[in-house]
Computed example of a mutant assay.
Amino acid sequence: MHNLLAQRLQLHSLFSSSAPLTRRYFSSIPHLQSQPSPSSQHDSVEAIFRIITTSPDAQSLKRSLRTSQIPFSNDLIDIVLKRVRFFPFNPLSALEFYKITSNTNGFFHSPFSLDTMLYVLGRNRKFEEIWELLLETKKKDQSLITPRTVQVVLARIAKVCSVKQTVESFKRFKRLVSEFDVSCYNALFRTLCQEKSMADARNVYHALKHDFKPNLQTFNILLSGWKSSEEAEAFFGEMRDMGIEPDIVSYNCLVDVYCKGREMEKAYKVINKMRDEGIDLDVITYTSLIGGLGLTGQPDKAREILKEMREYGCYPDVAAYNAAIRNFCIAKRLGVRIT
């Protein structure tokens, strides 16, 4: 269930690229600035990829790129860097390619290419190079450093460093991000939830909460995975005290902790409140209920939830059916028909 909630909280994949509003080429030949055909772009990607991964040094790399006469665009560079992301070779070659294109007059990288380059460096623990690249980017085009950049970098740091070191790295971004706001803090909390623990994320939140103004997304990131209903209620209350109204994600987190704690009466009170506020239950809400009813020895009532879901136009998924089946396995009633 925790995994289901975590998936709901992730709004975007770290590398879900969107098409840039403008394309900025460093080719000075006008006719080369037209959109390439898919086949020619594929050939260009293959050629550049081969140059990056086989060039013995920076000078050779630069010379080969110049000789290739390939017109570079944001789209092309995004695809190339996306491909080298998991390729096992010296990441400094990719960094050299990035710098060569960046140092060309009139060319600016896309946010996606910057974040991908930082990911490659972080995966190889080239943290010094990460900060150098961020400083260079700030001087040329600070708008490229976004909250997603913060999360990309912190995720790599958090994998190998302590919570304290991760938070210290986060604070370094204050001098780098043009708008260091709640979205940057949310990137930190999401990173800690994914790479460390929910407890670590909440402790850091309490240490930093006077430095920024939390929003709904902040609390939804931190509400998942509670072990104690008392702690969850207190956190939920803090959210309401700030004037932040919960949404279905917030309520689902509270329902889930009640169901896991076998406090079904409290869970149903929350559900009634959701309905009073016009919030339709979703498959995650119902799956929590099915699991909670199973824990309280009510597998038949849990099975009825599957029918209720369909009546409300919410159709069970694999997780919901698995929860219902598990209930009857626990009750040692293996011959029961679920649907």
Results as ranks from 00 to 15, higher is better:
I79E: 14
R24K: 13
E96R: 15
N322K: 12
H12A: 06
E128W: 04
F87K: 12
Y185N: 10
D282F: 04
Q142T: 13
F112A: 11
N124H: 15
N90F: 02
S288Q: 08
N105W: 02
T116H: 01
Q59T: 09
V150P: 13
S68V: 06
I221L: 10
S60F: 03
P30W: 02
V257R: 04
D57M: 05
M274L: 11
I70A: 02
G237R: 15
S73A: 07
D241C: 04
P30K: 10
L11E: 14
A234P: 00
S68Y: 03
F189N: 09
V270D: 08
E277K: 15
F112I: 09
A319C: 10
M239A: 06
D317C: 05
Y312G: 15
N186V: 02
A302I: 02
K266E: 15
W226C: 04
K301W: 00
S110R: 12
N74C: 09
S17C: 03
S68H: 03
T67D: 13
G243S: 10
V249A: 09
R175D: 11
I338G: 12
L61Q: 11
R175E: 12
V204M: 05
M239G: 03
E265V: 14
V204G: 06
G225I: 03
I244V: 12
S68T: 10
K307N: 08
I130C: 06
P30Q: 11
K269T: 11
P71I: 00
S55Y: 03
W131N: 12
F236T: 11
V45N: 04
S143T: 13
A331F: 03
I325Y: 00
L4T: 13
V167G: 07
M198A: 09
E136D: 14
L76P: 06
R262C: 07
K301S: 10
A324Q: 07
P246H: 01
L306V: 10
C314W: 01
I221N: 06
W131S: 10
L5T: 12
I325V: 14
S60H: 11
S228N: 15
L11V: 08
A207I: 10
D75G: 05
P91L: 03
S169L: 00
S228M: 09
R50F: 01
F173I: 13
G225M: 00
V153L: 05
R326C: 01
S60E: 09
S28H: 09
L306S: 07
P30G: 05
D78F: 00
N272K: 15
V153E: 12
I279G: 05
P214N: 10
L192S: 07
Y286L: 05
S34L: 10
T67V: 11
P246S: 07
C259G: 07
R23G: 00
F173T: 12
D282T: 08
A19G: 04
R326F: 02
V257H: 05
K227P: 04
F212K: 14
I70W: 02
R156M: 05
R333A: 12
I221Q: 00
K332H: 14
Q7N: 12
I48P: 11
R333K: 15
A302Q: 07
G297M: 08
T218D: 01
Q142F: 03
S162Y: 03
S17M: 01
K213N: 12
I130P: 09
E129A: 06
I221H: 01
K62R: 14
H42N: 11
L21C: 07
A319T: 14
